[in-house]
Design a protein around this nucleic acid. Sequence first.
DNA 1: AACGCTTCTTAGCGATTGTTAACGAATTCG
DNA 2: CGAATTCGTTAACAATCGCTAAGAAGCGTT
Lengths: 199, 199
Amino acid sequence: MPHRLRAWFSKFGPVPDEAWAALTPHVRPQALARHAAFVQPGDHDLLFGFLLTGAARQFYLLPDGIERTTYFFFQHDALADYRACILGQPAALTIEALTPCDLLTVPYAVLQALYDAFPAWERIGRRIAEYVAAGLEARLVETLTLSPEARYRLLVATPAKHKLLEQVPQHLLAAYLGITPVSLSRIRARLASGGAARL
Amino acid sequence: MPHRLRAWFSKFGPVPDEAWAALTPHVRPQALARHAAFVQPGDHDLLFGFLLTGAARQFYLLPDGIERTTYFFFQHDALADYRACILGQPAALTIEALTPCDLLTVPYAVLQALYDAFPAWERIGRRIAEYVAAGLEARLVETLTLSPEARYRLLVATPAKHKLLEQVPQHLLAAYLGITPVSLSRIRARLASGGAARL
DNA sequence: AACGCTTCTTAGCGATTGTTAACGAATTCG
DNA sequence: CGAATTCGTTAACAATCGCTAAGAAGCGTT
């Protein structure tokens, strides 16, 4: 059932039938148990993934064994070590299922070949990259500009991000905000008592 | 003399003569005095710029009048309110000359038209967006993951970023690192006395 | 139902950061 | 060239944050 996947790509530009037909044979379903990894550091031949159901997180494993979670994926999101795909390098991060996941995968190499072969895919590839860049820029500015508490308040005030509040354990959300779990807990306590907070 | 500009685009993919010829008539030189703005919040019909000489900074002007510098541009860098160009929105930030600048400009609308008209340009547009995304992701992870002091140490330990140390006043560099000028001064003092720092 | 693991909260302590302010040095501009 | 602005450092104080640790609550599993 790759309808959903086609709809996702279509958000970035029209997907003509022949372009779609060229992708379709390479789409594979994949299931992930809780805590199973979709990518791991050092992996080659990376996959592009599309989350049909479930939720996943992405984290960097630091040399000292500490995990740094930086992003989450939910139903109908695409997921990949995008940076590694783009730069043609082995994976540098781990993407791990937070819940059991069903997903569709396409080798990133196939996407790259489609970029070459179909203007429609190249267009979509450009728009995806632009979309990713725009999102990262917004988040970077937030992180540089706002205090931890202000970042959390902004998150709470942004309905589009409430999936994070609802589906992500707090200590992982803390990492996403660039703070420690203890700090986030304190911030929440402060805001809960301190009364209504304006942004 | 748009040779330099062509070389810049060529970093992302081949620029056939006919593709180049289609761009060339739209290239305009522009000079910026110190502190002059290349873009300002609210601007429409945004330009893509290419810095021939000089340096510039990008900042967001907050409602309370505070400036938040988030990026710098040096010789042979491209500059634009990329996010606004991509999303087709009016500019949200200011790009201002740190020193007198000479640059070349192309209306972003022209680039978009070229994306449609030439596969070579579409390819280059994709690679630029991917490059930007990869850079932003790296910086975001740094910012989320490292302490202010660690971020500064990393900067010092990264030769590729020494243009920042050399050409940017310290209080602006502090903003780039997401800290206050006072803090950066203290960090520097700490590291200067505290002896050799491992990363 | 009981066990164990994960998650969240709270506390204490030390260190870093933000804020404000003052001073001198450097730079810019008229 | 001189005055005005900008820039960097330092100090003092309050607030926040990271770290460590302990305990309670929740959840899943057997």
